[in-house]
Amino acid sequence: MIEPRSRRRGIPLRAVTPNAVTALALCFGLTGVRFAITEEWDKAVGAIVIAGVLDGLDGRIARLLKAQSRFGAELDSLSDVIAFGVSPAVILFLWSLHYVPKYGWVIALAHAVCCALRLARFNATLDAGDNPRKAAGYFNGVPAPAGAALALLPLILWLATDQWPILQLTYVVAPWTIIVALLMISDLPTYGWGSFRVRRGVRLPLLLLVGLAGASLLTAPWATLSGLVLIYVVAIPLAIRSYARVKRQRVSLNFPS
């Protein structure tokens, strides 16, 4: 006799799938540290990039399978702290910041701690009833995966320029790491996927650009990745300006901002 579904023990496999993707992202993040220890810098950055891709997929998979849970949200935050906070900090220390051991390690810690603080703030607002920025598709500060990419930008440029020595100098990497750490815990609005609206006439050219970018990542990965991260840097002030316009529109319509 087949047991009724309502009385079956355990949880459905679809509920485990997004959590498995999150755990995989965590493993790739830590694997980046393993490659950094052996000075395989290209593989170290590649592992963080893959972790970022997986982090972007797990939430969408959860929504697609209707498998969202508080456990998944907490696991995602813990994974983000390790993959995009701790791992990039260790990679940067082993690559450049260790040349100034005392202060270099403190700066590396700043990135990891600011990433943890950002995610703690995010978790604290999960149950907030009114979040105008989230409703408009914007983030508060730079999200953790983008923060990892920004922090690793000197290393990515170093790989793209055949190891241009100036990019590895601690006096270049250290201030940049501090700036990125502060951006993660800042209150600046930054773009999220929900903040973009694509016009019908632009849809096909946009798909073409995405396809070309994907092909470029395979043929010239570091130059392409450098370009994408630099575009994100330019997008930060644009996001501030864009949200200010959205905020004015909400005020004119008597919505909370």
Rank of each mutant, 00 (worst) to 15 (best):
S242L: 03
I240W: 12
V202Q: 10
L188C: 08
V33H: 09
A67Q: 06
A148W: 01
G201R: 07
R200F: 12
E40L: 11
P221N: 13
W164Y: 15
C114L: 00
T38W: 01
A36P: 10
R200S: 15
A89Q: 06
L206K: 10
A235G: 08
A62C: 09
S257M: 08
G32N: 04
L65Y: 05
G141T: 00
P256D: 00
A25N: 12
V33F: 08
A136G: 12
A112K: 02
A89L: 04
T22G: 08
A136V: 07
I11V: 13
A47V: 02
W176H: 01
V53P: 09
S6W: 15
G72V: 11
T38D: 09
V202T: 08
L97F: 04
K43L: 10
V198I: 06
I37H: 03
R60Y: 01
L169F: 15
A67M: 07
G129V: 08
K43C: 05
R200Y: 13
A135G: 14
A36Y: 02
R241K: 15
W164S: 07
V251R: 15
I61F: 12
D187A: 07
G227S: 09
A62E: 06
H111C: 04
R14N: 06
V234Y: 09
I178W: 04
I48A: 05
R250K: 08
V173C: 04
P165T: 14
I82E: 12
A160E: 05
L92I: 02
L24C: 14
L157P: 04
T38L: 10
A124N: 09
R60P: 03
L97E: 01
R34M: 09
H98T: 10
D80G: 03
G194C: 05
R197G: 14
E74F: 02
L13V: 07
V45G: 03
V113G: 02
C115R: 03
R197A: 15
L225F: 10
P145F: 08
L92N: 02
A120G: 05
G201Y: 05
D80Y: 09
V21T: 07
G59D: 00
L204D: 13
A235E: 02
I166Y: 13
L209P: 11
S226R: 01
I11T: 14
P175F: 03
G214I: 01
T31L: 10
C114A: 03
E3L: 15
I179S: 06
